[in-house]
């Protein structure tokens, strides 16, 4: 078994009377692709924000890449990558400028930056687009570029918040290939998605309902447990129990 890189223990976040995240406990190991599923409003984003060090938990514990979410958020931030559902590069900068900006923010030196940039451009086949504005790229390419930028600094964990929203199936498949490559390099992938076929690609999947984790296992075992044909069925069965309305 690989080293545990995300470890939460009864992690809870309350906003007034509302418990957005309710006592969640789980571990994620290095190189694992961990699917974090849940209907809108189930508390995924809040949970993820706590794991990224953006939001302080109300109670419970979480250790991310060896650092505590209460008082070592600076260290957490250095060791994670993040890509959100909204497209998250600067549209009015070129491909190269974006890579340099984010590389700089994560403290890569010029030599590393140059190597990484060339490597990345070649991998994505963007040689012809190096100096084009990101705004002019097709959405699929932007998402792939955003992912590559998010793992530019070789983080221990990369958090992906609905990374493939609005992308066509072919590009989604290519995107998942990038995810597998990253996992093979030892990067842990923590991904939220609404596409159940993508859930099948994950090593393990958790399903959140009303702030709690209702199920957590490999897709195969989950399907057996709920005697369902697909992850879709598993998800529907659990999500229907939800009391909360979506946001």
């Amino acid at each position: 078994m690989n080293e545990v890189v995300i470890k939460t223990d009864k992690l809870t976040k309350r906003f007034g009377d509302f418990t957005a995240v309710d006592n969640i406990t789980f571990d994620v190991s290095q190189s694992e692709i961990f699917g974090f599923l849940g209907a809108n409003g189930a508390g995924k984003t809040t949970a993820m924000r706590m794991l990224c060090g953006l939001s302080t938990p109300t109670s419970g514990d979480a250790i991310i890449a060896g650092f505590d979410v209460y008082n070592q958020t600076e260290n957490i931030k250095k060791n994670i990558g993040y890509m959100s559902q909204k497209f998250s590069l600067y549209e009015d900068l070129t491909v190269i400028e974006n890579i340099h900006l984010f590389g700089g923010i994560y403290g890569l030196d010029n030599y590393q930056l140059k190597n990484k940039t060339d490597e990345l451009i070649e991998k994505l086949g963007l040689q012809g687009e190096r100096n084009k504005l990101v705004a002019s790229l097709p959405l699929g390419w932007k998402q792939k570029l955003a992912f590559s930028v998010a793992i530019l600094h070789q983080p221990k964990i990369v958090f992906l918040d609905e990374p493939t929203g609005g992308v066509d199936p072919i590009t989604r498949r290519q995107f998942w290939k990038l995810i597998y490559d990253a996992a093979n390099q030892g990067i842990t992938i923590f991904v939220t998605t609404h596409y159940m076929d993508e859930a099948e690609y994950c090593n393990r999947v958790s399903i959140m309902v009303d702030g709690k984790i209702e199920a957590l296992d490999t897709p195969v075992k989950l399907k057996q447990m709920f005697s369902a044909k697909s992850m879709d069925d598993v998800f529907l069965r659990l999500a229907r129990k939800a009391q909360r309305t979506s946001d």
């Binding site: 931030k77 250095k78 993040y82 559902q85 600067y90 984010f102 923010i105």
Partner: peptide
């Protein structure tokens, strides 16, 4: 609006 703020906030900056 563009979501770049979120990315900057999760960065070590």
């Amino acid at each position: 609006e563009y979501g770049t703020m979120e990315i900057l906030l999760v960065s070590p900056v």
